[in-house]
């Protein structure tokens, strides 16, 4: 099928008269002369799906957060109240959980940016074309490899008789008990989200014309000065793009905290999961879930204000 030129919603010239060789020539021609009918036909199913299920679900989530459950029957009572939010903000335990989660997300984001930048820099500026392709695939495979498999692998590494303590033993250092600590959770998060940071940073680095870097060097700037004044500002949008993922994915995860952090680990995701699965308090879980949404909204607005989106 042809398509209208950009900006034009105007009907296309009618195609050749319906002839043999296609089914339903009448319907085909009728649709063909009415682009709006084709567009409606194509868009309706997916949009209906999104509006009636996904958007409706998000709206229900928002509304549910302002309801409460009956303490005895655990049935949802459709009574408007702010009880869930006052509980989250006034109870120091929940405040700590929110702060701990945000702190973890920030720490993971910074660590991944530090790990990703030199890797992406090598990929974009030093590697040969062939090496670059190989490295790209080397990032993509762990990105797509099963999430649970990757988390479980770290459980095997951190466990008391695991690879880590064996290696430390060989190096003559005593065993460490990393498993079921927040340090372990931090390392696993960094590992799992690393490819999400490398890819946009690489894309941003690759787009810098070498002439711009050469110009900086011709004008007398040394490596570090070029890096700080020319490359970093140009890569910033890529770093921000990557950080959106590392930050958002860490905020909402509860699988890694449960498996690596143990039953005592307490992040927002854990609270949400337990509120639904154990306490059956969906309104409270919904209120808790709105916090990462709000944080991400602020984060995205901040990124936009920095001009990160425009420059990308």
């Amino acid at each position: 099928m042809g398509r209208p030129r950009p900006g034009g919603g105007r009907p296309e010239p009618p195609a050749a008269a319906p002839g043999p060789g296609g089914g339903w020539p009448g319907l085909s021609a009728a649709l063909w002369r009415r682009p709006w009918a084709r567009a409606t036909l194509l868009l309706t199913p997916a949009l209906a799906w999104f509006v009636l299920i996904y958007l409706a679900a998000l709206v229900v989530l928002l509304i549910t957060a302002f309801w409460r459950i009956n303490a005895f029957t655990t049935n949802i009572e459709r009574v408007w109240n702010l009880g869930n939010f006052t509980l989250i903000f006034e109870n120091p335990a929940y405040r700590d959980i929110v702060l701990r989660t945000v702190g973890m997300a920030a720490a993971v984001t910074v660590a991944d940016a530090i790990i990703a930048f030199p890797f992406a820099y090598y990929m974009a500026r030093l590697a040969s074309h062939r090496t670059r392709t190989v490295l790209y695939v080397a990032i993509l495979l762990p990105l797509w490899a099963s999430y649970l498999a990757k988390v479980y692998a770290w459980l095997l590494i951190f466990t008391h008789d695991g690879l880590l303590n064996w290696s430390l033993g060989k190096a003559g250092v005593g065993p460490v008990n990393l498993i079921y600590t927040n340090w372990a959770v931090f390392i696993v998060f960094c590992y799992i989200w690393l490819p999400f940071m490398i890819i946009p940073v690489y894309a941003a680095l690759e787009r810098i014309p070498s002439s711009q870097i050469e110009a900086s060097q011709d004008l007398g700037a040394r490596t570090w000065r070029t890096l700080r004044l020319v490359i970093l500002p140009l890569v910033l949008p890529g770093l921000v793009a990557g950080s959106i993922f590392t930050f958002s994915l860490t905020l909402g995860d509860f699988i890694t905290p449960i498996l690596i952090g143990g039953t005592g680990s307490n992040f927002m995701g854990n609270v949400i999961e337990q509120s639904v699965g154990i306490a059956n308090n969906v309104p409270f879980a919904a209120a808790m879930a709105l916090i990462p949404v709000a944080i991400m909204a602020v984060y995205l607005l901040g990124a936009r204000a920095l001009g990160a989106f425009r420059a990308l």
Binding site: A46, F50, I53, Y54, L55, A56, A57, L58, V60, L61, T64, I76, I244, S248, L249, L251, G252, D253, F254, G269, I272, E273, V276, V282, A285, A286, A289, P292, V293, M296
Partner: peptide
């Protein structure tokens, strides 16, 4: 709009659908 389910943390999609079904 279509990208939201991938851009928001999975837990949001999960809990939203769960409240919706309930």
């Amino acid at each position: 709009f279509l990208v939201l389910p991938l851009a928001l943390p999975g837990i949001i999609t999960g809990i939203a659908l769960s409240s919706f079904f309930a």
